[in-house]
């Protein structure tokens, strides 16, 4: 690699860390990092260099309530857990979600596994010709569940089944994303919250992301706003199981 190419790669890494890249370029970088160890190393080096700016600031003690909120979350999640959920601490309209907010539980994983294996009868199932996906979102306090899996062999869509009704505050929407291992995300759309079966289109980037070690993220967001990445309160995170033929 020439010095110029090396500089270009290093500067890409620097701007990724600095945050000046466009969302598309940042997603590309995250994907490249997964397959280019030298680029990942360059990013880590720049994180170290630029973190000095953060280390240089005078410490400011956060209010005690922040730890209390974190501590509440810890009671519902484990370090090796597959998801977390948070509640808006200062939004009374969402306050009850703190209680309701729970990561995908073991039951969810087991149910996702059952879905994966073809259902509780456990009979052999014919493997699809293309990668297929399965996931499940489970809200423990309310028992609300969504079953999510590939809608067809081309995987251009997801089949979503909402098992119950789930109340969403007025002006808000449950927005579903696919999030890759590097933290990059791709919007799928608004998650239906009335009982029924639905089909949601998958973008190319979301489909590509699902082929890797990714997860479903659902955030509570303002209904009038759309973004390619979660912005509001993350309600549930659930792993995506992948089967290859």
């Amino acid at each position: 690699m020439s010095d110029m190419q090396h500089d270009d790669r290093d500067l890409d890494a620097a701007e990724y860390v600095l945050g000046t890249l466009s969302p598309e370029a940042a997603r590309d970088m995250a994907e490249r990092m997964a397959r280019e160890p030298e680029l990942a190393r360059a990013v880590a080096d720049w994180e170290t260099r630029l973190a000095r700016f953060g280390e240089d600031l005078a410490p400011v003690e956060p209010p005690a309530r922040v730890w209390q909120a974190i501590s509440d979350d810890l009671s519902m999640t484990r370090p090796t857990g597959r998801g977390d959920i948070r509640e808006a601490a200062n939004d009374s309209a969402l306050r009850r979600w703190r209680i309701a907010a729970v990561a995908a539980s073991t039951a969810a994983i087991l149910l996702a596994g059952a879905l994966w294996l073809g259902g509780p009868t456990g009979g052999p199932v014919e493997a699809a010709a293309q990668p297929t996906y399965a996931s499940m979102i489970y809200d423990q306090p309310t028992g609300m569940s969504w079953l999510i899996h590939s809608a067809g062999q081309d995987d251009n869509a997801l089949a979503v089944e909402a098992l119950q009704n789930y109340d969403v505050p007025e002006g808000k929407a449950l927005r579903m994303y696919v999030r890759g291992p590097g933290g990059e995300a791709s919007l799928v759309g608004d998650l239906p919250h009335a009982p029924g079966q639905y089909t949601m289109d998958l973008s190319t980037s979301a489909r590509q992301m699902m082929a890797r070690n990714s997860e479903i993220v659902v955030a509570m967001e303002d209904a009038g706003q759309t973004a390619s990445q979660p912005n509001g309160r993350i309600m549930w995170v659930s792993p995506i199981a992948l089967r290859r033929s």
Partner: peptide, 10 residues
């Protein structure tokens, strides 16, 4: 900060 530490925990 809350989000960050929950992520750090996980």
């Amino acid at each position: 900060l809350q989000d960050a530490y929950v992520r750090i925990w996980q």
